[in-house]
Design a protein around this nucleic acid. Structure first.
Ligand SMILES: [Zn+2]
Ligand SMILES: [Zn+2]
Ligand SMILES: [Zn+2]
Ligand SMILES: [Zn+2]
Lengths: 168, 168
DNA sequence: GAGGTAATTGTTATGTTATCACAAGTCAAC
DNA sequence: GTTGACTTGTGATAACATAACAATTACCTC
């Protein structure tokens, strides 16, 4: 049930530790690169890290507003853009939502597994996949700048419980 | 420059013929499956086929309205949903837009190459890619229902002309 | 052909996601 | 401490998408 090859998102794990580790990594990356991980930005990253799921900009905004930050959409969008641009978060196109990066700082291509049962999103390594895609594209003369690979389905736990996916 | 391995979208070609062929195929598929390719739906498919690019629902709607169909968003969204559901069109998540399927009726997994220079979108076969993704997911216990693979970059022509991609 | 049923189309209204434009504040370098 | 770049906050608006209901049309059965 809890496959050791599965990403943390699909396994019971010490999430507090998981958050702390990623956050520490993100701070280090920001410091190394001279990025300003300001209070809003840092807080948005923390909010994204709370769950292994994607969060919409307006949901993030609501949280920020409650905590005394601005109440207007650009406040959330700008922080999210910053995180995505600097590789600290990813955008899930299918969901119009955002998720914290699992491996900030490491150059990597990722694919995302979105569970339609429990909304968990797992980031899995996709360097090989990306290489395949690159060469398929190259064969047509197309040069890829960036790509997104997103799958919807059922996570191990939802499968085990016979849970059905929501049509969304 | 005009690589024979490139999809039609990236090559100069007899587009009228290209449209006619796909349309004929779509009609046959619809007939075989007892699908009702009504006037709005057929027209939407024609509109999508006009260019090898993705079109937003509101852009489609505008065209429909001009031609005497309904003027409200659901008119376009419903026709587009029908086409997507029945494999006659695809949704490009990244663009919130739709494109006619190149191979209606054939079971296939596709990846999309979106040119940021000229907005051309090419559908390329991705069965192998999908198999790789499936097994990577399976290794984590995740069962994929559907996946989207979308790449942004420069098409052969835009590269040849040194055209730059728009940030979008 | 009439009646019943399901699918389709149309409308109004509303919800959700994202960006623009500008003012005010913060920070670091000089 | 002034300059200039960046960041945050605001109001307004644009772009994308769906809910709910009425009217019509296709299709099947009798
Ligand atoms: Zn965790
Ligand atoms: Zn799940
Ligand atoms: Zn063509
Ligand atoms: Zn191009």
């Amino acid at each position: 049930m809890t496959d050791p090859a599965a990403p943390a998102a699909f396994r019971p794990h010490d999430h507090a530790r998981c958050v702390a580790g990623t956050l520490a990594l993100a701070r280090r990356v920001a410091a190394e690169r001279g990025l300003r991980l300001t209070p809003v930005r840092h807080r948005v990253l923390e909010i994204l890290l709370e769950r292994h799921a994607a969060m919409g900009a307006y949901e993030v905004l609501e949280r920020l507003a409650e905590e005394g930050f601005g109440h207007q959409p650009p406040v959330a969008y700008r922080a999210l853009d910053f995180l995505v641009t600097n590789g600290l978060a990813h955008r899930i196109q299918r969901l119009n939502a955002f998720i914290a990066c699992d491996h900030p700082g490491e150059a990597h291509h990722a694919a995302f597994l979105v569970c339609s049962g429990c909304k968990t999103v797992a980031e899995i390594p996709a360097d090989e996949l990306r290489a395949t895609l690159d060469s398929a594209a190259a064969a047509t003369g197309f040069a890829i700048e960036r790509a997104s690979v997103e799958a919807v389905g059922l996570c191990p736990e939802c499968r085990a419980q016979g849970r059905a996916g929501q049509p969304a």
